[in-house]
């Protein structure tokens, strides 16, 4: 189609364009793209310049700069913050698979249809109501202070264990809903086809329903993982010295907020690319479905 248009163009209309392999339309689009990019760059530059020039003119700027953007404090604290961030990463890494598995178990309980399994279904419903209804931080407090308060021996009084248990309990309630949406989006006729072949309920779920359902909800589940990566910082409220708490320690030590800015930067470096990747995944999936 494009090729025939190109051939149909009058011979004199642009030997140069033909040489570079571009049709007239493509050249026009490229010109327009370049122009809009220039406009975007210019307006961005003006906006940044305005901030850089105007903000320092505010009366409190000098104090804020010293308190939040203090180079000396930043250099001194950043490496240690990075180190403390590994604890966040580690907690994330052991929570994520547990959430994926427990969330799936809950979703399957919720899908139970035989009357004999009704208690499981009821449990899954109450569970999801409970843990989605209470703020994560409260769950962390209640479990993180409550259970070690029972006077368990080491290591069962560790805040690392109970903090992450709280995260797993909370997050799997959300992830279970995501799985459930996926499971319910698989048409009843797929189940009928599987069952009519003589497959068991378990095989039907495992080979027919779940592979399709999970594929559909991966992007949504990934969004949950990104918020988990941020929420592991909440565990610091019951003890573990991860990045947020470490930044708090430095804040007190240097009487300066720069460590918080450093911590925020570290989070951004992880979450921004992850968010972009998920957005791309969602876009790709939508294109495939349309």
């Amino acid at each position: 189609m494009g090729a025939s248009e190109r051939q149909a163009a009058p011979a004199g209309s642009g030997a140069a364009g033909r040489e570079s392999g571009l049709s007239r339309r493509e050249r026009r689009e490229r010109r327009e793209r370049r122009r809009s990019m220039l406009i975007a760059a210019a307006s961005t530059a003006i906006a940044i310049a305005a901030i850089v020039i105007l903000v320092p003119m505010t009366p409190g700027w000098e104090k804020v700069q010293k308190a939040f953007f203090n180079e000396a404090v930043f250099v001194k604290t950043f490496p240690k913050l990075l180190e403390a961030f590994w604890l966040d990463v580690a907690m994330f890494l052991w929570c994520a698979p547990l959430i994926a598995v427990w969330g799936l178990v809950l979703a399957l309980m919720r899908d139970a249809r035989s009357p004999a399994l009704y208690p499981l279904k009821l449990f899954a419903i109450l569970y999801s109501d409970l843990f989605r209804g209470v703020p994560v931080i409260l769950v962390i407090y209640l479990i993180g202070f409550g259970i070690p308060g029972l006077g368990l021996p080491r290591p069962w009084n560790s805040p690392y264990i109970w903090g992450t248990v709280a995260l797993v309990l909370s997050y799997s309630a959300y992830v279970a809903e995501v799985y459930r949406a996926g499971i319910e989006s698989i048409h009843e006729s797929q189940r009928a086809a599987a069952v009519s072949l003589g497959l068991s309920h378990g095989d039907m779920m495992r080979f027919v329903v779940l592979p399709q359902a999970i594929r559909r909800v991966i992007p949504a589940a990934m969004n949950n993982l990104i918020s988990l990566q941020k929420d592991v910082a909440l565990v610091s409220f019951i003890g573990p010295v991860e990045i947020f708490r470490q930044a708090g320690v430095y804040k007190s030590l240097y009487a300066n907020f720069t460590p918080y800015v450093g911590a925020a930067l570290i989070f951004l470096v992880v979450t921004v690319p992850a968010t972009r990747a998920v957005d791309r995944m969602i876009a790709r999936q939508q294109r495939r479905q349309s």
Partner: peptide, 20 residues
């Protein structure tokens, strides 16, 4: 019901193949 269904094949209007 499972062994019975194995003895009776069924084909549907909308094919219902497994798309994956």
């Amino acid at each position: 019901p499972q062994p019975i269904r194995q003895r009776i094949g069924m084909v549907f209007q909308s094919y219902n193949l497994f798309p994956h």
